[in-house]
Amino acid sequence: MTQKASVAEPDYARVASDAVDTLLSLNAVLVWRDRPFVYTTGWASPVYVDCRKLMSEPKRRQLLMDHAANMIHDRLNGKIDVIAGIETAGIPFASWLADRLSLPMVYVRKKAVGWGLNAQIEGDLPPKARCLVVDDLTTDGLSKIGTANALRRAGATVSDVFVVFNYDIYPQSRQAFKEQGITLHALATWADVFSQTKARSYFSPEQAKVIKQFLADPIAWSARHGGADSLPAFARSVP
């Protein structure tokens, strides 16, 4: 793949640190107050990571997207033909990454509009294109796998997904990615968040306690707070 500029081998500890520092500085890690957050997949959670705040912060955004470009160049150089963003949050991140890597871009709708093989895909997708799926974050991974399979049905090859933030707490989703032949790449995870929040006193002691309970068993926590209560539905939903 052609690069716009030379890239250095990433220092992944620094990448994660910069990503977390950015999210915390932007107050993008939100904690529940009166009621839990309920994700589109149905899971209830005491926390929500709002990566979309990066859109409004050019310097922070540029730093993290430079890290992202270096990561993809380091891990997938020459193995990607097209960047594929997921509607809607993945579109800006895919655009910035495609620009840095001088690659074509498409975006994938969550549902098909109209008819035909490419009814879910906007932009020109070359035959047998090797696509990198891009989104802002992932919780259980369902939408990423759905997008990968939509691209595959259109004739593309998909073996990698990139997100800014990976919750990395649903073990069954890791298995689903493995079964689908997909490797997930992320700038940071919840483990990285907790490496910085204590020193900043970002969470109160009570908030930290609740979040740790959630991260230890997100499915049980969800069930106790009115959200989805099992992952079999997730497994059955994967195309």
Rank of each mutant, 00 (worst) to 15 (best):
S95L: 12
L97R: 01
D81F: 08
F93W: 15
D66Q: 13
I91Q: 12
Y107F: 11
A69P: 03
V106K: 05
V38N: 04
G78K: 00
A13P: 00
I91S: 12
T40W: 06
A89V: 08
D66N: 13
R33A: 12
T41S: 15
P104T: 06
A44G: 08
G78M: 09
N27I: 02
D81G: 10
L23S: 11
L23H: 03
V38T: 12
I80P: 02
E9M: 14
D50P: 03
A13V: 05
Y39T: 10
F37N: 10
L101C: 02
G90W: 05
K79A: 14
A13N: 07
D11R: 04
P104Q: 04
N70R: 10
S6Y: 08
H67G: 02
P46F: 05
T22R: 02
T88C: 05
I86A: 09
K79P: 00
N27P: 02
A8E: 15
D74P: 04
T41Y: 09
Y107W: 08
S56T: 09
M105Y: 04
G85P: 08
A19K: 01
V49E: 09
R61N: 13
S17P: 02
S45P: 03
W96L: 13
V106L: 14
H73E: 14
Y48E: 07
L30E: 15
L23K: 00
S25M: 10
Y107I: 07
A68H: 01
K79V: 03
R75A: 13
A19Q: 01
N70L: 11
A28I: 09
D99C: 05
V47S: 05
V49N: 06
I72L: 09
L23G: 05
W32N: 13
D66C: 08
D21F: 05
V38F: 06
D18T: 08
D21A: 12
L23W: 06
W43S: 02
A44F: 00
N77Q: 15
I80R: 00
S25F: 08
L63Q: 10
V7M: 15
V7P: 08
S17L: 07
S17Y: 05
L101D: 07
K110R: 09
Y12Q: 14
A69M: 09
A94Y: 09
E57F: 12
L24Y: 07
W43M: 12
E87P: 01
S6M: 11
M65C: 08
R60Q: 13
T41N: 14
K53Q: 15
H73V: 01
I72P: 00
H67F: 08
W43E: 14
A8F: 14
M105V: 03
I83W: 11
R75C: 10
M71G: 01
D50V: 03
E9W: 14
A19H: 00
V38G: 06
L103K: 00
P46L: 01
R14G: 11
S6E: 15
G78E: 11
P104H: 04
C51E: 13
G78C: 07
K4M: 04
L101V: 03
Y48G: 04
G78I: 02
V20S: 07
A89F: 04
K79Y: 07
K53S: 13
R100Y: 00
R33N: 11
L64H: 05
